Simulated scan of single mutants.
Amino acid sequence: MTGRLTHIVRHPIKSIGHEDIDSAPLHQGRVLPFDRVWAVSHQAAKFDSPLRDWARKSNFLRGVAAPQLMAVTAQMQADGQITLRHPDRAALTCDPDRAEDQARLIDWLRPLWPETRPAPRAVERVDGVALSDMAEPYVSLLSLASLEALGQAAGRQISRHRFRGNLWVEGWAPWAERDLPGKRLRIGAAVLEVAMPITRCRATCTDPATGTEDLEMLELLERLNGDWHFGCYATVIEGGTITLGDPVEVL
């Protein structure tokens, strides 16, 4: 079962923007570089800011609580700043590590976050720790054929950005990735071991182009496969550079 790597996606600020890139160095036991480096905590977070260790996703701003966040895109600049764009907001370029830019980022996010939810509080970062949904340093792996099958069942084209994945593969049979947990893959110069399926939440019900819910994704997944799984988590066990077009081989 050999496929081809077609998309590499990172999300520098958790739940706030996605960015496609052409190549990345993977390191043993680490996430995709610059993926979920920062996150924005809210006033009901169960830790004192600044954050000192990984914390559960419920402590942060997320697309499941604010569908408008799903429409944000990100672009990292050469100087380390990040430009965020949203169809209803003027673009913002900021350095999430600078206090003055953190305040600007929170102000930029306020109109996209429901007033009924605890307000955005602070930009968090923990050196060497990805603020992903899982504490383990996973890279997510998804299939374009499965996405196409999902779209056919829904009767519409479905954006891959609903799923906030890292690595997208074409050339596999639809749903073949569901048999991958426990197996190893070679992608470019790196080797990954597939750990477990990804259980999805209602954030996937939102169209990333508009930031509005338009599809009962969880019902669709359950009807097709009997669960809410889409994609897999994998661990990097041998580091190396990956590049668009690399073969993805099951070892």
Rank of each mutant, 00 (worst) to 15 (best):
R162M: 13
G239N: 11
G188K: 11
A90W: 01
D214S: 12
M196I: 11
L150M: 15
D107R: 12
M70E: 03
R89S: 04
R4I: 09
A149E: 10
S146N: 04
R10Y: 10
C201Y: 05
A90G: 02
I237F: 14
T210K: 09
P111D: 02
A173E: 13
H229M: 05
A39L: 11
H7D: 11
V123Y: 14
M1V: 10
Y138T: 08
R10T: 14
F34G: 03
I13F: 02
V9N: 10
A209I: 01
D107L: 15
P120Y: 03
P12D: 09
M196T: 12
P181M: 08
K183M: 12
V250R: 05
H42E: 11
G188E: 05
R156C: 10
L131R: 13
R98H: 11
D22P: 12
H229P: 04
P114N: 06
H86V: 07
R4S: 14
E100A: 07
E213P: 11
V40N: 04
E124N: 08
I21R: 07
I8T: 06
A91R: 11
R160Q: 15
P96G: 11
E136P: 01
G245K: 12
E170S: 04
P87D: 01
R110I: 00
D48T: 13
P114W: 01
I237V: 15
G3S: 15
I13A: 07
T2R: 14
F163K: 00
M70Y: 12
D127E: 14
W54D: 08
C201H: 09
R52N: 10
L251Q: 00
E177D: 01
A153F: 09
S58A: 10
D207S: 09
L251P: 01
D127Q: 13
F60L: 08
V37A: 12
A176Y: 00
L84G: 13
Q43F: 06
G128I: 09
E148C: 01
S58K: 07
H27S: 11
W38M: 05
A119K: 13
Q43K: 15
